[in-house]
Simulated assay, not measured.
Amino acid sequence: MVKPKLAPRMHADEAPADSAELWSLIFRSFIPPVFLIVLVLGSIFFGWATPTEAGGVGAFGAILLAAAKRNLKFSVMKDVLVRSAKINAMLFMIFLGATAFSYVFRSLGGDDIIAEFFENLGIGPVGVLVLMLLVVFVMGFFFDWIEIILIILPVFTPILETMDLGSHVAQSDFLVWFAILLAVNLQTSYLTPPFGYALFYMKGAKIPGVTMQHIYAGIIPFVILQLIGLVLVALFPEIVLWLPRKLGL
């Protein structure tokens, strides 16, 4: 509204010819994904399903939409099942590898070595926390968030169990607060090159004249916003803890 030229109108040959075509596009292209989102998130918010079960609700909703669009064919279902099996196999292999790593790491006393290393740095609990978040941020350039969690948490857990930030965050609230800090930090892994998922989604859109270098430059403000959010959550824990306390969690 302030600078309309920043969001120019569609070309006449691309825009709907009349209101009937516009509403047709809305019902065919906009309403179905919104319905699916509401179905999945609504089932969680209203307590009808756990987040895991909501995945099944979403799959059921997707089947309904495919049937409504007359795309529910045996070949489509077979392709979906095969790809789902491959993704699940990949995830379970990651879980198996991470579990084996964690077991060997602790069996060899790796957690004691890491805890002693951080103690000898002499940077205090705040410095250790900053260093942890920095490690996660850097790993986000090269790893998916699942791998980061499964690799990092076994290493950091012994340190987290002994950390005390005094009056800044109560010991009983520390793990909840740290989990949100970690989640906000991990959001950057979707944007940071060279392996950020969102970068490849944008590249997959195949926008004429837009190269990977343009996308890398374009994500910088958004990464800065994520880091500002991380700093705010770190400095003001009540941003995270207010709602759980209100709900008595």
Score class of each variant (00 low, 15 high):
Leu91Phe: 11
Met93Lys: 14
Ile94Pro: 01
Phe95Gly: 02
Phe95Thr: 00
Gly97Trp: 07
Gly97His: 09
Ala100Ile: 07
Ala100Tyr: 06
Ser102Phe: 02
Ser102Asp: 06
Ser102Gln: 04
Tyr103Arg: 12
Arg106Val: 07
Arg106Trp: 11
Ser107Glu: 15
Leu108Tyr: 14
Leu108Glu: 13
Gly110Asn: 11
Asp111Ala: 10
Asp111Cys: 08
Asp112Ser: 14
Asp112Val: 15
Asp112Gly: 13
Ile113Glu: 11
Ile113His: 12
Phe117Gln: 07
Glu119Asp: 12
Glu119Pro: 03
Glu119Cys: 09
Ile123Ser: 06
Ile123Pro: 04
Ile123Asn: 06
Gly124Ile: 13
Val126Ile: 15
Val126Cys: 07
Gly127Leu: 07
Gly127Asn: 07
Gly127Val: 08
Gly127Ala: 08
Leu129Cys: 12
Val130Asn: 08
Leu133Cys: 04
Val136Glu: 04
Gly140Pro: 02
Ile146Arg: 00
Ile146Gly: 00
Ile146Thr: 06
Ile146Pro: 02
Glu147Ile: 11
Ile149His: 03
Ile149Pro: 02
Leu150Met: 12
Leu150Glu: 02
Ile152Arg: 03
Ile152Leu: 13
Phe156Glu: 01
Phe156Met: 06
Ile159Arg: 01
Ile159Pro: 02
Leu160Asp: 00
Leu160Thr: 00
Leu160Trp: 00
Glu161Arg: 13
Thr162Asp: 09
Thr162Glu: 09
Met163Gln: 05
Leu165Glu: 01
His168Glu: 07
Val169Asn: 00
Ala170His: 13
Gln171Lys: 11
Val176Phe: 11
Val176Trp: 02
Trp177Arg: 00
Phe178Tyr: 10
Leu181Cys: 06
Leu181His: 04
Leu181Lys: 05
Leu182Ser: 04
Ala183Asn: 05
Val184Ser: 04
Asn185Ile: 05
Leu186Val: 04
Gln187Arg: 08
Gln187Pro: 14
Thr188Tyr: 05
Ser189Glu: 07
Pro193Ala: 00
Pro193Lys: 00
Pro194Gln: 07
Pro194Leu: 06
Phe195Ile: 15
Phe195Leu: 15
Tyr197Val: 15
Tyr197Asn: 09
Tyr197Lys: 09
Ala198Thr: 15
Ala198Val: 15
Phe200Ser: 14
Phe200Ala: 11
Tyr201Val: 14
Met202Gln: 13
Met202Asn: 08
Lys203Tyr: 14
Gly204Ile: 08
Ala205Glu: 15
Ala205Ser: 14
Ala205Lys: 10
Ile207Phe: 09
Ile207Trp: 12
Pro208Asp: 10
Gly209Phe: 06
Gly209Gln: 10
Thr211Ser: 15
Met212His: 09
Gln213Pro: 08
Gln213Trp: 14
Gln213Tyr: 13
Tyr216Ser: 01
Gly218Asn: 03
Ile220Met: 12
Ile220Gly: 09
Ile220Asp: 04
Ile220Gln: 08
Pro221Arg: 10
Phe222Thr: 04
Phe222Lys: 03
Phe222Gly: 02
Phe222Ser: 01
Val223Asp: 01
Ile224Cys: 06
Gln226Trp: 03
Gln226Val: 14
Leu230Arg: 00
Val231Trp: 06
Val231Gln: 08
Val231Pro: 14
